[in-house]
């Protein structure tokens, strides 16, 4: 409750939350707003925006409704953003918790794996992964998660290293609790707050990575994404720049909204940390 109260005191956080809420409503409402397949042809090609009220944002090279594509594209962006982040946090927090709690050789081995992943640029890793396994939504999600889990892993490890020295962890050992239960039920929940604050940055990065993969033609070909829309518009960039600009703006607003939401959240969390 008090976390929510502190969050509402940050204007950027509220703005981000509003943008995010609007996007989620749009993404969930897409099948009702535009029940037709967004990839179906509905009008003459390259209709300019704001010239036909049936097609408010015009049509693309093939005569597909840009607004419908945009609305359906938000589903892919948000789905990939959230799913990849969830996967990255689960993998990262688990690895970080095990490394921090076990210590010694296990810690060394796991952290060298983290190092190895961090030395490869994240986008390159995702690109290689998708081009080897093939483009589909789950593969894209996994590819992005693989390049994003190291941050949560490092953060969770650092938190666990400080938490495991607390008396309540010693008390859990004294009552005979199994080490796995101590690590995942006593320590991990208390280590999660800063890791979750990091999640907004990961969501924003994941959305951009997904768009970049789609732009390069490595997205799922069966669904509309903002990245594929920008790539599609590139061919007619001089005559119809709006085809690239519109999804580009959507992407910027989304990433900004997610990022500001994360800012507000970490600010609210750090205020609590200062107080306690």
């Amino acid at each position: 409750m008090s976390l929510v109260a502190r969050f509402t005191r940050s204007p950027e956080g509220l703005f981000g939350a509003a943008v995010l809420a609007a996007l989620i409503v749009i993404a969930l409402g897409a099948p009702f707003l535009f029940p037709r397949d967004p990839l179906s042809i509905v009008g003459p090609p390259l209709t300019a925006p704001f010239t036909d009220w049936a097609l408010p944002l015009g049509t693309d090279r093939l005569g597909r409704n840009v607004l419908a594509e945009l609305v359906h594209g938000s589903r892919a962006s948000l789905l990939v953003g959230f799913a990849a982040t969830l996967a990255a946090i689960i993998i990262g927090a688990s690895v970080g918790t095990i490394a921090g709690f076990a210590g010694g050789l296990v810690d060394e081995a796991l952290m060298r794996v983290v190092d190895a992943f961090q030395t490869v640029p994240g986008f390159l890793l995702a690109l290689a992964f998708v081009s080897v396994i093939g483009a589909s939504l789950p593969v894209v999600v996994l590819a992005i998660a693989l390049s994003a889990w190291t941050g949560p892993a490092r953060l969770a490890r650092a938190e666990v290293l400080s938490l495991r020295e607390r008396d309540y962890v010693a008390a859990a050992r004294v009552i005979g609790m199994h080490p796995a239960e101590i690590a995942f039920r006593q320590i991990l929940p208390n280590a999660l707050a800063p890791v979750l604050a990091l999640s907004a940055v990961i969501v924003a990065g994941a959305i951009l990575t997904e768009a970049a993969l789609s732009f390069l033609g490595l997205g799922d070909p069966n669904i509309v994404t903002w990245g594929s829309m920008i790539a599609e518009g590139r061919a007619v960039l001089r005559s119809s720049p709006f085809l690239s600009i519109i999804p580009g703006i959507a992407l910027v607003v989304t990433v900004l909204g997610v990022y500001l939401f994360g800012e507000g959240l970490s600010e609210a969390l750090s205020r609590r940390a200062v107080r306690s």
């Binding site: 008396d167 309540y168 008390a171 009552i175 005979g176 006593q186 929940p189």
Partner: peptide, 22 residues
């Protein structure tokens, strides 16, 4: 060892630190 722990218990100095805050 975990089974024997039930026979020997401990109480710590700072009860706030010795209880999981959640």
């Amino acid at each position: 060892l975990r089974a024997t722990r039930k026979r020997i218990q401990m109480v710590f100095q700072d009860p706030l630190a010795a209880l999981n805050p959640r």
